[in-house]
Amino acid sequence: MNIRIAQVGDVERLVDLVQSAYRGDASRAGWTTEADLLDGQRVDADMVRKAIENGVVLIDGDAAACCQLERRDGYAYFGMFAVDPTRQGQQRGRTMLAEAERYARDEWGAGEMRMTVIVQREDLIDWYVRRGYARTGEVSPFPYGDERFGKPRRDDLAFETLTKKLG
């Protein structure tokens, strides 16, 4: 898998990829769907452009997987992780996550990676735990009322922070 740093010219492809992995009927082809939890968009072009400008977005050569990294105070934040739902189960997610950890550690000197995951996504949390991430118990509210993050289908959504020390 050829992974590179995304450029502004990749924005629309990235929006399509992230949307297809998490929202709508197309997302149901994979296991990362949030279609039962949220309707609407997951990201928009402006959000992706800002991610590229304010951090690093990694994308594989055929735009089947991506993630976002941000430098934060004392750690790297991992987000906007998506794998084309028709290509999940091919090690693309594992490979992208490993490259994100390598990049944060080797290029930025980050000693820790953090992310937030919707608490109702136990299957996804378990996937991260199997890759060395620890649940912190730190929970933050879902941004209800901000449709840039989707239209909730339930009223109990929240995020849990996961963390991993980087070699």
Rank of each mutant, 00 (worst) to 15 (best):
V11T: 15
V11N: 01
E12D: 14
E12I: 04
R13Q: 14
L14P: 03
L14A: 07
L14G: 05
V15A: 09
L17W: 02
V18I: 15
A21I: 05
Y22A: 09
Y22D: 11
Y22E: 11
G24D: 04
D25T: 11
A26K: 13
R28F: 00
A29T: 00
G30W: 08
T33N: 03
A35P: 00
L38V: 12
L38Q: 05
Q41V: 14
V43Q: 05
M47A: 15
M47Y: 04
V48G: 10
V48K: 02
K50I: 05
A51R: 03
N54R: 13
V57H: 10
I59L: 15
G61L: 09
D62A: 13
D62N: 13
A63L: 01
A63D: 10
A63R: 08
A64H: 05
A64F: 00
A65G: 06
C66L: 07
Q68R: 15
Q68S: 14
L69M: 12
R71K: 15
R72N: 03
G74P: 09
G74R: 08
Y75V: 01
A76C: 12
F78K: 10
F78E: 09
F78I: 13
G79L: 05
G79M: 03
M80W: 03
F81Y: 15
A82F: 03
A82M: 02
P85N: 14
P85S: 09
T86K: 13
T86N: 11
R87S: 07
Q90Y: 05
Q91S: 14
Q91F: 06
Q91M: 12
R92C: 02
G93W: 04
T95P: 00
M96Y: 03
L97E: 03
L97M: 15
A98Q: 13
A98L: 10
A98H: 10
E99Q: 11
A100V: 11
E101K: 08
E101Q: 12
E101W: 04
E101L: 06
R102C: 03
Y103N: 01
A104N: 06
R105Y: 11
D106R: 02
W108R: 07
G109Y: 05
A110M: 14
G111E: 13
G111A: 12
G111P: 05
E112I: 04
E112L: 13
M113S: 11
M113R: 01
R114F: 02
T116V: 11
T116Q: 13
T116I: 10
I118H: 06
I118Y: 02
I118D: 00
